[in-house]
Nucleic acid binder design. Structure first.
Length: 217
DNA sequence: CCTATGATGATCT
DNA sequence: GATCATCATAGGT
């Protein structure tokens, strides 16, 4: 039916194949799957509901557009690893690198539904008015899962499942998958419909167009 | 619901 | 020095 990986005891090879494809194929296939973040206090399970594709050096919206730097080096490595960046002076965001190696493409994990471990996420997300808001947005997701630059480069495919791993889940039907422009991305790549989400899911973040900052006086 | 704006600092030109 | 793959808050509709 679908070409998604199936549950199997030795999941590692199939999972590697899952990420070693074009980012525009991997991104929508991540929807509905479960990311498990294992913290010292216990695991947090997140069902992915919104992602964005970033197509490496050919993509003006990608951190890799201007080539390899100290920050984005992980994007040039093998697929299935975490690329974590720090932005706006306060926030972290989590990407999963896609193949082939060297293309420097990745999927930004923008939102999800906490399936388990919400009691571990809530203390990190005190401004969330309800559980639906715990991971509704890329920086909120990273905060809820206690993800920072320390996890940059982590292998999310191979065991052990620390500090996090992607497990198989039930993908939504094709009709439930929507696509549109990426959020907060300007420049020449702004119009590309490289954001994917599960239609009607309450944890999907509100769309915001790119807003150029006004110069401070 | 919506829009506007300040926070805050690493990164890159 | 400008930008930034964002969020929380304040205030209007």
């Amino acid at each position: 039916m679908n070409d998604a990986p199936q549950d199997t005891p030795d999941r590692t090879p199939l999972m590697r194949d899952f990420f070693d494809r074009d980012v525009l194929d991997v991104a929508p296939d991540l929807l509905g799957r479960t990311l498990v973040r294992r913290t010292a206090e216990g695991p947090i399970e997140l069902r992915l509901t919104e992602v964005e594709a970033y197509a490496g050096e050919i993509d003006p919206g990608s951190h890799a557009f201007r080539g390899k730097t100290a920050r984005n080096g992980v994007m040039y490595g093998p697929p299935g690893h975490a690329y974590v960046y720090f932005t706006y002076g306060m926030w972290h965001c989590l990407n999963l690198v896609c193949g082939p190696e060297g293309r420097a493409s990745g999927v930004l994990l923008r939102a999800g539904e906490i399936l388990a471990g919400a009691e571990l996420a809530r203390p990190r997300r005190l401004t969330a008015r309800n559980d639906r808001e715990l991971a509704r947005g890329p920086a909120r997701l990273a905060t809820a899962l206690s993800i920072d630059r320390v996890l940059d480069g982590s292998d999310v495919v191979a065991g052990p499942p620390e500090p996090m791993s992607v497990l198989y889940g039930t993908p939504p039907s094709r009709e439930q998958v929507r696509s549109g422009p990426r959020t907060g991305v300007g420049g020449d790549g702004a119009h590309q419909p490289w954001r994917f989400w599960i239609d009607g899911d309450p944890t999907v973040s509100p769309y915001r167009a790119h807003a150029p900052r006004r110069r401070r006086t």
